[in-house]
């Protein structure tokens, strides 16, 4: 069972998580037929910007986040934005819609796409609840081991209670699978790998 403090923390996070939506006029653009390279680039940029803005709004509401050193706040967000967005894409995937409508326009190689789709598939098989998604997003953002963090202990203090709540959620919703919590945490290094690939890909685009 959750303690009253844990329950209210969970309710609070779920409330801000449910408000985490990108504006409809941005997501609608994906459905428009637009196949020029420049058009695709603009849509992708606008979506990415919008996702980051929404992510920052969610993060600002995480209990204690605004008490962290300002530069640490930025380092946490910079380090986690790509992972949080990939993570979010496993739920409802506007990114995969974008890619499936415009298969070749980004010249993204199969070595990058295939592991990503396998990842999304394996997440689907975990049958995660909304609470688990929300908590894992918060846990990804509040990772104390990101680059350039000065006060790691303070970040740890914010992340730990969320891990406790996530563990309880896993026991509650997946009583038949005692490994569920470990399985979820095991996805996080995979997300980091995508983050590295993403950075490499951006760099190669820039060079080209």
């Amino acid at each position: 069972e959750f303690t009253p403090e844990q329950q209210s923390l969970l309710d609070y996070i779920m409330d801000s998580y449910s408000k985490q939506q990108i504006p409809q006029e941005v997501s609608k653009k994906l459905l428009h037929e637009e196949f020029s390279a420049e058009g695709n680039f603009l849509i992708l940029t606008e979506m990415a910007t919008s996702h980051v803005q929404v992510l920052v709004e969610f993060t600002k509401k995480l209990p204690g986040f605004q008490t962290l050193d300002h530069e640490d706040q930025i380092a946490l967000l910079k380090g986690s934005a790509v992972e949080a967005i990939y993570w979010k894409a496993t739920i409802r995937s506007p990114w995969s819609l974008l890619f499936s409508n415009r298969p070749n326009s980004f010249s993204i190689s199969d070595e990058f796409i295939t592991p990503m789709f396998n990842f999304y598939k394996s997440i689907g098989e975990l049958k995660m609840t909304q609470e688990e998604y929300a908590l894992l997003t918060a846990i990804v953002i509040l990772s104390p081991d990101r680059q350039y963090i000065k006060d790691r202990e303070s970040v740890e203090r914010l992340q730990e209670p969320l891990l406790d709540i996530l563990q309880k959620c896993c026991k509650l919703h997946h009583p038949d699978n005692p490994q569920h919590f470990a399985c979820l945490l095991g996805r996080l290094p995979e997300l980091r790998t995508f983050n590295h690939h993403h950075a490499e890909m951006l760099m190669s685009w820039r060079v080209n």
Partner: peptide
Amino acid sequence: NSSTNMGLEAIIRKALMGKYDE
């Protein structure tokens, strides 16, 4: 779109300060 050429850090800094629509 004014944010098209803005880097990730700039978007984050702006959003953190609540300056969405500038």
